[in-house]
Design a protein around this nucleic acid. Structure first.
Lengths: 210, 210
DNA sequence: GAACCAATGTGAATAAGGGCACAACGTTGG
DNA sequence: CCAACGTTGTGCCCTTATTCACATTGGTTC
């Protein structure tokens, strides 16, 4: 176990490993080798061992990894042995469908606030019981409800301004669905989810690959 | 201009550049330097020049890049000077909201087919006029409507089987929203959109960064 | 309890990617 | 027409990430 700087790619892969391991757990697989896990995750076995080695020794030589244990270890590493409170900003198509989406809760992410600017939406009750607040109340509500992570699902034009408000409210982690690069101070970590980019990438491969 | 293998990261960035350039175009900016564009995209200026250099010389020394031209050039590179037909598989929360989402059409991606297994959904007409087909008809409909790219928005459990069917139907590009790694032959290109991974990544930063 | 087995953990080798710094070269001004 | 300027395009280097290959070591068997 070292204290080297951990590559971002490693963190991403840990998340993938965890998901695969959780599936294996449901299939009552108790132990798995890096080789088999690697195949299932589509990576190199050495990669898995090295990724894990950043954080400790979790395997048993000659045997492999104990699935249930490893899931817990990775959860601990990623900071997932707790729950995180999310705030959704923007309740258009994407925003509303994400709030209804069950995968968040399943992994310990709980929406505790939702915002929009549309007066027709403000005050409405969402399927999960949340009442929509106006964006003007953002800072107050976010502090009040102990929100840790902001989710931006507004149109592109509003994203930067929302990000600014989130940061003012003390948020240090943002998941951005708007198709723009938002600028934030170093203390804040932004992850972009941009399927247009992914589609462009597919288009490129289809055009050149043939 | 070389014929080296293009890094995937370059393709992703080209897509980002294009989006930023399109914004600039709407603000009537005619010419831009790599330095200014870089700042706006959050990358290194040399990176931009190098990315573009893979495909040709698009700038004017001492001046910069002509915005409108560069947009077209990048479109040409990525294969976006045409439209692409998409098929949505899975009309749950995410699937339906994506179909309603305007950004796809704006960038030349058109849904020409939609599938689900739920008998209550099959036959229904979607807001964009598409009638939902049963997944059993997938291969037939996809060939008939000349679909190029499959979008998987099913639960995790169904994703691999849907992917298999898409590939049988001759699809070579898949955008996967299901939170699993799907296995496909080399001829098919898969891009995953997995916000759980992104959230885990934020959680990691929040837990360690403080 | 000793010898064998199998899969881990890791140092070294390889590959890839990103950034600096400068030469090349249009453009503009005198 | 020439010189000065500014930004591109790119060779080189450095950093980072991935893969290989093997020594290490817990478990298992006889």
């Amino acid at each position: 176990m070292k204290f080297a700087k951990i590559p971002m790619a490693t963190i991403n892969r840990l998340s993938v490993y965890m998901r695969t391991l959780q599936e294996l757990l449901e299939e009552d697989v108790e132990v798995i080798s890096s080789e088999r896990l690697a195949k299932q995750c589509g990576v190199n076995p050495a990669q898995i061992r090295k990724d894990l080695a950043y954080f400790g020794e979790f395997g048993v030589r000659g045997v492999g990894y104990h699935v249930a244990d490893l899931v817990n270890q990775i959860k601990e590493i990623l900071g997932l042995s707790r729950t995180w409170n999310l705030a959704m900003v923007g309740l258009g198509n994407i925003g509303s469908s994400l709030i209804r989406h069950g995968n968040f809760v399943k992994h310990g992410y709980i929406f505790t606030a939702a915002f929009d600017v549309d007066p027709q939406k403000v005050g409405k009750k969402l399927p999960n019981g949340l009442v929509v607040n106006h964006v003007d109340e953002l800072e107050e509500v976010i502090r009040e409800r102990d929100v840790h992570i902001g989710v931006i699902a507004t149109p592109a034009g509003a994203a930067q301004s929302v990000a600014n408000q989130l940061i003012l409210a003390g948020i240090n982690g943002i998941l951005n669905f708007a198709p723009v690069q938002i600028q934030v101070p170093d203390c804040c970590h932004v992850e972009n989810v941009d399927f247009t980019i992914k589609l462009d990438c597919i288009a490129y491969h289809l055009s050149t690959g043939v």
